[in-house]
Design a protein around this nucleic acid. Structure first.
Length: 559
DNA sequence: ACCGGATGGAACC
DNA sequence: TGGTTCCCCTCCGG
C-alpha cells in the first residue's frame, strides 16, 4: 500500500569480470574512498578484498538512493552479491549464503546446514529452567493433581499419510481451518479471498463453497458453542459474520468499514477472534490494536473498543482460557502476547505481557488445563510459558524452529493436539525445505514441547508446497493441512488398510478448479460438469484429465 | 519457460 | 516520527 516511487536518476553501472577486477561506471567516482566500516563479519576473505572497491561503490550508490546495476560476468551470490560462493539449491539441498546469519536460529557464524538446532532428534532445544521449586502452587499441584496424571505418557499417534483425496476448491491460498465440533468428517476452510469451504472428507466429493460472505482474507473462524451448525468468521474486510452451514445464510454482526474504502489509513481489518461462551460474546481484534465485543444473543456490538496492543499494530490472535472464562490471551505485531482479565479490560491493564523478539503469530492456552501457553514468533522460536511450573516473566522453553517466512504465505501457527492428555504435542508446518531422497520438501513437524524433541516430520513427495496451516482433529487421529490452495487429510499409516493406501496414491487433485487454470488443459469453455469421472470409495468424483495431474497433489514438479 | 504481482515487516534515514 | 527500500527456499498465471 506504500506509494510506488520511481527512481529519478539513472543508477551507476558496475561490471565485475571473471579474471581481474575491472570497473566501468557512468563517470566520476565521487567520494569513492570515503571511510566506512565494513559490516562486522569475520575476517575478510580473498574475495572480500577483491570486491571491496565494488562494494564501496555499491554502498555509495545505495546511500544516494540509487541501486546500481551490476553487470556480472562472474558468478556472484544472489544473496550478498559477492563472489566465491553461491546461495541456492544444489539439487534438493539449499545452500545458505555464509555471509548471513544462520537462517534457522539467526545466530552468526554458521549456516543452517551446520546449525546445532538442526539435529533432528533434538530439534532446537533450550533447556527449561525448573523454577520455583518451593512454590506452594507447585506443592499443591504435586499433592493433588500429579496423582491424577498418568506418569507414562501414551505413545503419540502421528497422522502421517495422505489418505483421502487432496482437494482444491479454493482459488487463493488457504488461511484458516476448523474441524466441525460434532460431525467428525466435516472440515471448514477459509481462504485469502474470503471464501468459506465446507468439506465432507468422508464423502470426498461433497463440498460447498460460500463465496459471498466476505470480500477478503478470512483470518479466523469459530463454531458457535450454542449451535454447532453456525460458524463465526472474522475477515480483513472488517466484518464479523455468522453463517448457517446448512443454508449458507449469513448475517454480518459488525462492520468496521461502513463507509467503504477510504484508503489504507482508515480501513480496518479483523484478525484475532474467539468466543467466550460464558459471557456470550464474540471477541474480535483489528489491525489498529483494538478489541471489540459482540453479544451473541443480540448479535450486536457491546461496549467500546479497547486498545489491547500497541496503537496501530495488528492483533492477530485471541484465545479464551478453556478453564477460566475470565482469562483472555492476545498476541500481535507489537512483539507481545498479553494475558488479560476479562473483568478488567482496559488499555495497559494486562495481567502479563509476554515479550518476544519479533512478531507473534499465535498464542494458545493448552487445550485441557489452560495452564500452559504456546506461542509462535517470527524470530523462529516456539515458546512455552508455564503458569504452574514457571512464572510468566520468561518462557519455560524456547524451541528453535523454521517458520519465519512472512510475505505471501499464511503465517505459521503452532497448534496443540487437543487429544493429548499430557498437553505436550504440537504441530506446525516447516518453512525451509529438507532434502528427502532427492526432493526438496517442506515437512509438517510434530514437536514434544516438554522436551523440544521433534517427534515426527510428516511429508509426501507429491506435496511440494509449504504447509503453513495445520489443525489436529479434536477426537480422531486426523491432521488437516492447508497448503497453498489445497487441502489434505492425513491419517496414521498403520491405521490404513492396503486398499486405502493404494487409493491415497491414485486420486489426488479433483474438485471445482479455477476456470482459468483449466483452460490450460482444454480449450473449450467449461463448467464443472465435464471433468473426467473417477470412482473413489464407491463415489463418483471428478479428477483432472491428464495422467500427470492425477498423480500429483500440486501442479508443478520440483527438481 | 520466464516474469511480474500480490504483499508485510524491519531497518534504515 | 514517517517515508523509503529491501527482503534467502512463494506461487500463480499471463
Amino acid at each position: 500500500m506504500a506509494p510506488q516511487t520511481r527512481r529519478t536518476a539513472f543508477p551507476k553501472v558496475l561490471i565485475a569480470r571473471d579474471s581481474d577486477y575491472e570497473q566501468s561506471s557512468s563517470g566520476e567516482e565521487e567520494e569513492e574512498e570515503e571511510e566506512e566500516e565494513e559490516e562486522e563479519e569475520g575476517p575478510p576473505s580473498e574475495e572480500d578484498n577483491e570486491n571491496e572497491e565494488k562494494m564501496e561503490d555499491f554502498k555509495d550508490a545505495k546511500r544516494k538512493g540509487k541501486t546500481p546495476i551490476t553487470i556480472s560476468l562472474k558468478k556472484v551470490c544472489k544473496v550478498c552479491k559477492r563472489a566465491g560462493h553461491e546461495a541456492g539449491f544444489k539439487g534438493a539441498t539449499y545452500i545458505d549464503c555464509p555471509m548471513k546469519p544462520c537462517f534457522l536460529c539467526k545466530m552468526p557464524g554458521h549456516t543452517t546446514m551446520t546449525c546445532p538446532h538442526r539435529v533432528a532428534t533434538q530439534h532446537g532445544v533450550i533447556p527449561a529452567p525448573h523454577k520455583n521449586t518451593q512454590n506452594p502452587v507447585e506443592f499443591i499441584f504435586e499433592r493433588q493433581l500429579r496423582p491424577g496424571i498418568a506418569s507414562i505418557k501414551p505413545a503419540y499417534v502421528i497422522p502421517d499419510q495422505v489418505n483421502c483425496a487432496a482437494i482444491r476448491y479454493h482459488s487463493r491460498r488457504v488461511t484458516s481451518l476448523e474441524f466441525h465440533p460434532t460431525y467428525n468428517h466435516i472440515l471448514l476452510s477459509g481462504d485469502k479471498k474470503g471464501q468459506l469451504g465446507v468439506w465432507d472428507f468422508a464423502k470426498v466429493h461433497e463440498k460447498t463453497v460460500y463465496g459471498n460472505i466476505h470480500s477478503c482474507i478470512l483470518n479466523n473462524m469459530r463454531f458457535s458453542p450454542a449451535n454447532d451448525g453456525t460458524i463465526y468468521c472474522a475477515s480483513s474486510d472488517g466484518t464479523v459474520s455468522c453463517t448457517d452451514l446448512e443454508t449458507g445464510i449469513s448475517t454480518s454482526l459488525m462492520n468496521l468499514n461502513p463507509d467503504g474504502w477510504q484508503g489504507p489509513a482508515s480501513w480496518r481489518m479483523l484478525y484475532g477472534m474467539d468466543i467466550n461462551s460464558d459471557k456470550g460474546a464474540v471477541l474480535v481484534a483489528d489491525n489498529f490494536g483494538f478489541l471489540y465485543l459482540v453479544d451473541t444473543r443480540t448479535n450486536s456490538r457491546t461496549g467500546k473498543a479497547i486498545m489491547i496492543h500497541k496503537k496501530g499494530s495488528k492483533v492477530v490472535g485471541l484465545h479464551c482460557n478453556p478453564v477460566q472464562p475470565d482469562l483472555l490471551l492476545s498476541c500481535g505485531n507489537d512483539h507481545f502476547a498479553r494475558l488479560w482479565d476479562m473483568r478488567r479490560l482496559e488499555a495497559g491493564s494486562a495481567l502479563y505481557n509476554l515479550e518476544h523478539r519479533r512478531v507473534v503469530n499465535s498464542a494458545y492456552f493448552s487445550p485441557l488445563s489452560g495452564s500452559k501457553i504456546l506461542t509462535t514468533s517470527q524470530d523462529n522460536r516456539l515458546r512455552i510459558w508455564d503458569s504452574i511450573f514457571g512464572n510468566l516473566d520468561s518462557p519455560s522453553r524456547e524451541i528453535v524452529h523454521s517458520h519465519d517466512f512472512n510475505r505471501h504465505l499464511t503465517p505459521f501457527r503452532a497448534e496443540w493436539d487437543p487429544k493429548d492428555p499430557s498437553e505436550s504435542l504440537a504441530v506446525i508446518g516447516h518453512y525451509i525445505s529438507e532434502n528427502f531422497n532427492g526432493t526438496a520438501l517442506h515437512p509438517i513437524d510434530f514437536i514434544d514441547i516438554n522436551t523440544g524433541h521433534l517427534v515426527a516430520e510428516v511429508m509426501d513427495p507429491n506435496i511440494t508446497t509449504i504447509s503453513p496451516v495445520n489443525k489436529l482433529h479434536p477426537r480422531d487421529d486426523v491432521l488437516a493441512t492447508g497448503s497453498s490452495r489445497s487441502l489434505f487429510i492425513w491419517r496414521p499409516k498403520e491405521k490404513l488398510d492396503v486398499a486405502e493406501q493404494l487409493d491415497a496414491r491414485k486420486i489426488i487433485v479433483f474438485g471445482g478448479d479455477g476456470k482459468k487454470r483449466r483452460k490450460k488443459y482444454r480449450d473449450e469453455d467449461d463448467d464443472d460438469s465435464d471433468d473426467d469421472k473417477f470412482t473413489f470409495k464407491g463415489k463418483n468424483v471428478k479428477v483432472k484429465k491428464s495422467e500427470k495431474q492425477t498423480t500429483r497433489y500440486s501442479r508443478k514438479a520440483k527438481r
